Amino acid sequence: MLRARFLASMLAAGVAPWVRAEAAPLRFVYPRVNDQGEEAFGFQGLRLALQKWGRPFELLLAPTSTNYRRSLYQLETGEIDVIDMGTSRAFEARFQPVHLPVDRGLSGWRLLLVRAGMVPAFRAVHDLAGLARLRAGQGQDWPDTQLLLAAGLGVVSGSDLPTLFRQLQAGRFDYLPLGLNEIHGLLTQWQALAPDVVVEPDLALVYPFARLLFVRRGDGERHAAITEGLTRAFEDGSFNTLFAARHAGLAQARLAERRVLQIDNPGLSEATRAIPARYFIRP
């Protein structure tokens, strides 16, 4: 009797009971960090991965801008669902990583932002001992901080990128190392806060590193969706095509003309070290 009533109600509503309802789109909320939204490469790479996943999804930006530290809290509390950030053992214990590098390893190739008047001082730097006489700026909770300290380099922290640009302009520290894939764009974005700052022309700081997508611990559904889609995007070449289009200006880094200072990354997990070399590029 109950089954008959259920079938009758479904038919009255115009729904055939043998037709399976479509699954609701899986929702992903991505943070708006330092005023970067859809133009952030992490957002674009995530969108491509979800398109390659091939199932219904909804990708949204968080409504308000935040800083890096706050975005980590938002991920833990469920205000956002996914974030891309430089990885470390600590982050991989705290969040669930997708072990495919959305930066293709370029975040470990660092150029330096300096005040123009300090360029001669950096021209005299030829090794890590020379660089250790100067102070680096780093964001709070950036994983790079610990590896720079482990290499014997001095570090001054700031709450977010706008603060770091102001601190560099004011002489609170001497250089701000940023990935060669992002440094020119970030300087353009924040130049008004640091009018005397330029890209240092002679040095590159290099260490093993990767920027990964992370979800909350236990969020297996989103983790599986991103992993499946991003793997397909790498395998069919579409991710590399997107990456090349967004990083067409890498030649301006002039790496062949720079003195390269290499340091280790003791905070890199074994799982990250095990990512196959084909996912990385060497500029």
Results as ranks from 00 to 15, higher is better:
residue 62 A to D: 03
residue 67 N to G: 15
residue 251 A to C: 13
residue 247 H to G: 12
residue 179 G to F: 00
residue 191 Q to L: 11
residue 62 A to W: 09
residue 231 T to G: 06
residue 58 E to Q: 15
residue 213 L to M: 10
residue 271 A to C: 02
residue 140 Q to R: 14
residue 190 W to L: 05
residue 143 P to F: 08
residue 176 L to N: 01
residue 222 R to C: 04
residue 172 R to P: 09
residue 236 D to V: 12
residue 157 S to I: 13
residue 126 H to Q: 12
residue 120 P to G: 09
residue 281 I to W: 00
residue 193 L to I: 10
residue 184 H to I: 08
residue 252 Q to T: 15
residue 168 L to R: 00
residue 40 A to N: 14
residue 111 L to M: 13
residue 156 V to C: 07
residue 28 F to A: 00
residue 43 F to N: 01
residue 182 E to T: 10
residue 165 F to I: 04
residue 203 L to P: 04
residue 204 A to V: 05
residue 94 R to E: 08
residue 149 L to G: 06
residue 231 T to L: 12
residue 139 G to R: 01
residue 191 Q to T: 08
residue 145 T to V: 14
residue 55 R to S: 14
residue 184 H to F: 09
residue 283 P to Y: 10
residue 201 P to C: 10
residue 212 L to M: 07
residue 86 G to R: 05
residue 7 L to M: 09
residue 137 G to M: 04
residue 210 A to S: 02
residue 131 L to W: 06
residue 231 T to A: 14
residue 270 E to W: 02
residue 259 R to Q: 04
residue 1 M to P: 13
residue 106 L to A: 05
residue 95 F to K: 01
residue 2 L to F: 14
residue 111 L to K: 03
residue 63 P to S: 06
residue 7 L to R: 09
residue 160 D to M: 08
residue 235 E to M: 04
residue 130 G to T: 11
residue 19 V to Q: 00
residue 55 R to V: 14
residue 17 P to G: 07
residue 122 F to L: 00
residue 282 R to C: 12
residue 57 F to W: 11
residue 159 S to M: 13
residue 168 L to C: 11
residue 282 R to N: 11
residue 132 A to G: 15
residue 158 G to F: 05
residue 115 R to K: 04
residue 165 F to A: 08
residue 200 E to N: 12
residue 61 L to Q: 04
residue 74 Q to A: 03
residue 112 L to A: 03
residue 211 R to W: 02
residue 175 Y to S: 08
residue 88 S to P: 05
residue 167 Q to W: 01
residue 274 A to F: 09
residue 174 D to H: 15
residue 191 Q to H: 12
residue 195 P to T: 10
residue 268 L to K: 02
residue 207 Y to C: 04
residue 202 D to R: 15
residue 61 L to T: 04
residue 205 L to K: 05
residue 256 A to H: 15
residue 233 A to T: 06
residue 45 G to I: 06
residue 45 G to C: 01
residue 210 A to M: 05
residue 261 L to Q: 02
residue 254 R to A: 06
residue 88 S to Q: 01
residue 81 D to I: 11
residue 187 L to E: 00
residue 40 A to K: 05
residue 69 R to Y: 07
residue 223 H to I: 11
residue 14 G to W: 02
residue 193 L to M: 02
residue 129 A to D: 07
residue 142 W to G: 07
residue 225 A to N: 06
residue 104 R to H: 02
residue 246 R to L: 12
residue 45 G to N: 02
residue 235 E to N: 10
residue 47 R to V: 11
residue 45 G to H: 06
residue 142 W to R: 12
residue 281 I to H: 01
residue 39 E to W: 03
residue 108 G to L: 01
